[in-house]
Nucleic acid binder design. Structure first.
Length: 866
RNA sequence: GGGCACGUGGCGGAAUUGGUAUACGCGUACGGCUCAGAACCGUAUCCCGUAAGGGUUGAGAGUUCGAGUCUCUCCGUGCCCACCA
């Protein structure tokens, strides 16, 4: 037998495809098969080119998109299936530092390696559209989008303490934390006061939430985004604050608290403020024990994220000398400070009561009085709750609640809000868990933030702010954008001067001082102010890793094919141009987006946010970037752990390709199990798919040259069923069952004494998306000149998928007792007759009374006997 | 603590969506080809039983002529969020 020489076949066809530009999006050979201008934009989450190269887990998603895009090409659609590199950010930079080479060189080297590895797998990428986020032509537009956001007032300077990773020596966004630790290096994160650029993603919270309903994404990804955004409907209640030191208690100010459980307001027996609550400063003169409070604030500030979120014990200090008034009861209640209340959520203050575990614990610890105002329906439990032996957090019936006694929690809420609102004590409002996006990083390897700080302009803006709009117009020389007015002194770099290139530096290692390494380059830092031409300083922080991936799917669309392969400067067209708009109209949204679930609450939220902004400023016309999303499940090592250099359990795809071929690897990874599920790698099992491909190769040897006249109806049915199944399974990302169907067909064909070339041809076209090389080889051997990948996908005959004969199962009382073959759509009477004539069935029915006969057409008969 | 999944042979997993449970593949056993090898070919392979037959989808109950699939309780696993008021 002729051995399966996968190396020769794969090398040969990869070279032919590349020479004929088979997979070019525009003007490639593939164009010829395009029907009606239908498009399919198939997108992989692009990799960051790490130094370790690919392991067999990485390509799983890429194989899936490749199968999907090849299938769609065969369906006659124009395909955009690009690939690029997300090369800014900590992974690339840390690799560079560890290996003592400049990140730019490291990235170049790693990209080369990745590209070579991907090349071995025979993907149908249009490499002419390759992008790299660290290319100045690319990040020019990353900066441009940021600049638009800044001018539109979506970027602001914040002095709030932020999460600081002491090991990576940079600030981090909320999204970059895992259990209070740095997501990259697992160091315990500290709080650090650092001025930061923050993007107002919360302005888009509602749209990010409602947009989810329109997307075909896995439900759990949508659900985690909903969780992450964390919309809570509730009420803001105002508590008046009195200085109780005076004889005639003096009202000094008021405090707002947020609650989703206003039904518990009557049991509110104390108020708790977050340690950083600004009110503490405002009323400090009234606080008798201010020293004690300050000490507590200091302690709280020094806590790490982990200590702060420790739920086991509650600490706090009472504010002596001041009290709050519960607006529902008019009672004077104590005010406490405790770090279980978060400064950054809601209003940074809560009213506390017996119907919240945390409040309950705190009250018990410090002997603060509690009052019950909700009772559970169970009488025994209610008694315990009344005696304050149990903390009842659920909804129940109101009690001790004045006019609302007897109402259920649900009924009471709107009524209580209305009642308090009338008196001016409350308003219903909505809060989000989502926090604004801390956008500055104190690291070298990122896009420079295209802003400068100018003292002269700061004065201008300050003047502007103190005057009325009209006066301001006359008195200030320059026009300031919304962002420039909101952030006095900060001026956007002139668009025409973009990109702000990352300067070459000697030392790109993080300083740890909170300054970026860029701050040391005086020549770069000191610039002329774009507004007043006076002396100004550049912003030296860089953008986070996620910036570049917020618009890369747009970049692929507008990176059109270049006539010359040697074009070195690949400029992107203006994002605001009409031409860009037309192209984006054609390609967006992405039809199929494939990547890991770990991006659910990071990249996938950030990119949606930027996209919605680009929609608002008229760059894109769709409201959402990614219409359909599929998650790829991890490939674990054979020991069940993650593949990692550290564990020494990494399988390199190059070796697998060398031994078994890319086609075997591709088919195996698609066959392993459900696509979105994590499964352990098993090289032994891969042998099975290799055998399967060899079997098809052998089929070809048996193919008869002359046309066969005899047609086997059973085989024809199977063939059409397979066409249907494989197509539907590819659309549904159920590749494992698609391949199983191909195996079943192959096994059946193998048993046939004669095999018409037409039948084999269909099998080969069905195989083509999965094993493109071997399919192309066999296709050519069958005498075709054109590539199999431009063939139309076979069409199944709806009548042919239904077999003429069906197996009817006969059950007695639900247990299978026999079966027989019958013609499709045989009458119920004839089925019954045949069934009852079967000897085994007769035996089971003997001497019993038949109560009922259930007939499911073309499937089964169930006889109920007693 | 909250949310979302899930639990089927020795293993990865199928199951027309309520209708023959264990497809397909791995592994294993036996046989074949071969001087030999297996990354080759063939046959068999859920469990008990010689057989007739019986049992089986984490456990238990329920609905139904019929449940892996629907409902409830319990046990177990995975993922996401979490002092979020």
């Amino acid at each position: 037998m002729q051995p399966y020489d996968h190396k020769r076949i794969e090398r040969k066809w990869q070279s032919v495809w590349s020479k004929t530009k088979l997979y070019r999006t525009d003007g490639g050979a593939g164009q010829r098969s395009t029907v009606n201008g239908e498009k399919s934009y198939v997108l992989d989450m692009f990799p960051y080119p790490s130094g370790d190269g690919l392991h067999v887990g990485h390509p799983k998603g890429y194989i899936a998109t490749d199968v999907f895009s090849r299938y769609n090409r065969m369906q006659g659609k124009q395909i955009l299936h690009p690939m690029g590199w997300d090369a800014f950010g900590l992974p690339a930079e840390n690799y560079a530092i560890a290996n003592k080479i400049h990140p730019e060189l490291a990235v170049k080297k790693n990209i080369k390696r990745f590209k070579k590895q991907l090349g071995l797998l025979g993907f149908d990428y249009d490499w002419e559209r390759e992008i790299n986020t660290t290319d100045p032509h690319y990040y020019k537009w990353t900066q441009w989008i940021f600049l638009q956001m800044f001018h539109h007032g979506l970027a602001f300077r914040s002095n709030e303490p932020i999460n600081w990773c002491p090991s990576c020596k940079t600030g981090l966004a909320n999204e970059d934390l895992e259990d209070g630790k740095c997501e990259r290096c697992s160091s315990v994160v500290e709080k650090k006061a650092l001025p930061q650029w923050v993007l107002k993603i919360t302005d888009y919270a509602d749209r990010l939430l409602s947009g989810l309903d329109t997307l075909s994404w896995p439900e759990y990804i949508k659900e985690s985004q909903r969780n992450w955004i964390g919309r809570s409907e509730g009420a803001e209640i105002r508590f008046k604050i009195q200085d109780s030191g005076f004889k005639n208690k003096k009202e000094i100010t008021e405090i707002k608290v947020f609650t989703t459980r206003i039904d518990t307001i009557f049991s509110g027996t104390f108020v708790v403020l977050a340690p950083e609550h600004p009110l503490l400063k405002n009323i400090e003169s009234g606080i008798v024990n201010i020293g004690e409070i300050r000490k507590y604030q200091d302690e709280a500030r020094q806590k790490t994220e982990i200590e702060r979120t420790d739920k086991s014990n509650k600490t706090g200090v009472e504010l002596k000398g001041v009290t709050a008034i519960n607006p529902s009861t008019g009672e004077s209640i104590p005010i406490w400070v405790s770090d279980f209340v978060l400064g950054e959520y809601g209003t940074g203050a809560v009213f506390a009561d017996a119907h919240d575990r945390r409040d309950f614990d705190m009250a018990k610890t410090y002997g603060i009085p509690l009052k019950v105002s909700i009772l559970p329906p169970e009488p025994e439990l209610a008694e315990k709750v009344k005696r304050l032996e149990e903390c009842f957090e659920g909804e129940g019936i109101l009690f001790n609640s004045g006019p609302f006694d007897g109402l259920s929690s649900k009924e009471a809420r709107p009524k209580i809000v209305a009642w308090l609102q009338e008196k001016g004590h409350a308003t219903s409002t909505v809060k989000y868990r989502l926090k604004d996006w801390v956008f500055s990083r104190q690291r070298y390897w990122g896009e420079p933030i295209p802003l400068v700080f100018c003292e002269a302009c700061k004065k201008q803006v300050d003047v502007h702010k103190t005057q009325t709009a009209q006066k301001a117009k006359q008195s200030t020389k320059h026009k300031f954008s919304k962002g420039e007015l909101q952030n006095p002194g900060w001026i956007g770099v002139d668009e025409k001067k973009l990109p702000v290139k990352l300067p070459k530096v000697e030392s790109y290692e993080p300083t740890g001082t909170g300054e970026s390494p860029l701050a040391k380059i005086e020549k770069w830092v000191n610039v002329k102010c774009p507004k007043c031409k006076g002396p100004a300083k550049r912003e030296t922080n860089t953008m986070p890793q996620w910036a570049g991936s917020c618009w890369y799917y747009i970049a692929y669309c507008i990176r059109e094919n270049h006539k010359s392969q040697n074009t070195k400067t690949k400029q992107f067209p203006n994002l605001k141009s009409q031409k860009t708009k037309r192209i984006l109209q054609k390609w967006l949204p992405v039809d199929m987006y494939v990547g890991g679930a770990e991006h659910a609450t990071r990249h996938l939220i950030y990119a949606r946010f930027w996209h919605k902004f680009l929609f608002d400023i008229g760059v894109v016309e769709t409201d959402e970037p990614f219409q359909k999303l599929q998650n790829v499940g991890l490939i674990l090592a054979s020991d069940g752990r993650k593949m990692s250099k550290r564990f020494g359990n990494v399988v390199n795809p190059d070796e697998i390709v060398e031994r078994f071929g890319a086609d075997s690897l591709r088919v195996y990874e698609m066959f392993m199990g459900p696509f979105n599920q994590a499964i352990s790698w098993n090289t032994d099992a891969l042998v099975g798919t290799h055998r399967f491909l060899e079997k098809i190769l052998r089929l070809h040897l048996n193919v008869e040259k002359k046309k066969s006249t005899a047609s086997n109806p059973v085989l024809s049915t199977l063939l059409h069923q397979t066409i249907k199944k494989v197509g539907e399974d590819i659309i549904g990302f159920k590749f494992n069952t698609a391949i199983s169907a191909l195996m079943i067909l192959t096994n059946a064909l193998e048993k046939e004494p004669v095999l018409p070339p037409k039948t084999l041809a269909v099998l080969i076209t069905l195989l083509a998306p999965f094993a493109p090389h071997i399919a192309e080889e066999l296709w050519q051997k069958l005498g075709h000149k054109k590539s199999v990948h431009l063939e139309p996908w076979p069409v199944y005959d709806t009548s042919a998928i239904k077999s003429l004969l069906v197996t009817i199962v006969v059950q007695i009382n639900g247990k299978v007792r026999g079966s027989f073959e019958a013609g499709r759509n045989a009458t119920e009477e004839s089925l019954k007759e045949t069934a009852f004539s079967l000897p085994t069935i007769r035996k089971w029915m003997e001497g019993k009374e038949t109560k009922k006969v259930i007939i499911v057409p073309n499937r089964l008969i169930n006889v109920v006997v007693v």
